[in-house]
């Protein structure tokens, strides 16, 4: 079966094509809502974040650069940033950082670009996250998905500031190494 690429759908969204817009929302709504609900932990706020994400995608579609990453990564980064802004401004109660990484089988349609991503980058990131010591993983999740600074993490975890910084940096080094391995393996 022929499947329209993510890039083509984004082009259609940018031009205001109704069919492409509907297909774009249908393809990515579960992923965007998944990012939003896991960070803001509130269905109403998550829907607002998710809707805002699609609005931003339409408004900023021309700025998307395929050389810098996939449409999915670009779109989910928009969702992440909006969700973090919401958490910061609304003082949302943070869920257990371990729960945010709970894995489930993907639902709904995925484009060919997304399927390729899942088979490589995302799998390696999942593996790298799973291999992290729990304290590093927790520090990374608090920083990456809840926008917590090293100082805030040191206070909430009752650890020295230097330890919080080290945990974040070490975790990030391992994730980056996983992505670099991925890039090299695909070449």
């Amino acid at each position: 079966m022929w499947v329209v690429s993510d890039d083509a759908l984004l082009d259609g969204l940018a031009t205001g094509d109704p069919d492409a817009t509907a297909a774009f929302v249908e393809r990515f709504q579960r992923r965007v809502f998944g990012v939003a609900i896991r960070i803001v932990n509130d269905p109403r706020l998550a829907e607002d974040v998710a809707q805002e994400t699609f609005l931003r995608a339409w408004q900023r579609a021309e700025a998307f650069d395929p050389r810098r990453g996939t449409v999915a990564a670009w779109l989910l980064t928009i969702a992440r940033n909006l969700a973090i802004d919401t958490v910061r401004l609304r003082r949302v109660v943070i869920v257990d950082p371990a729960e945010i990484l709970d894995r489930r089988e993907p639902t709904g349609e995925r484009g060919p670009d997304d399927l390729a991503l899942l088979s490589s980058e995302t799998e390696r990131l999942h593996a790298a996250l799973g291999d992290l010591p729990p304290d590093q993983c927790r520090a990374l999740v608090l920083a990456a998905f809840f926008g917590r600074t090293a100082r805030e993490i040191s206070e909430s975890e009752s650890i020295p500031l230097g330890t919080a910084k080290t945990r974040i940096r070490t975790a990030m080094l391992r994730l980056r190494a996983a992505l670099v391995d991925d890039t090299e393996a695909s070449e």
């Binding site: 998944g34 998550a46 998710a50 999915a72 990564a73 990131l125």
Partner: peptide
């Protein structure tokens, strides 16, 4: 590296009527 991180979060079906 940071841009790739949100891709690890699991999908979730949005509320009815979201689309």
């Amino acid at each position: 590296t940071v841009d790739a991180l949100p891709t690890v979060l699991a999908d979730q079906e949005p509320p009815s009527g979201f689309e």
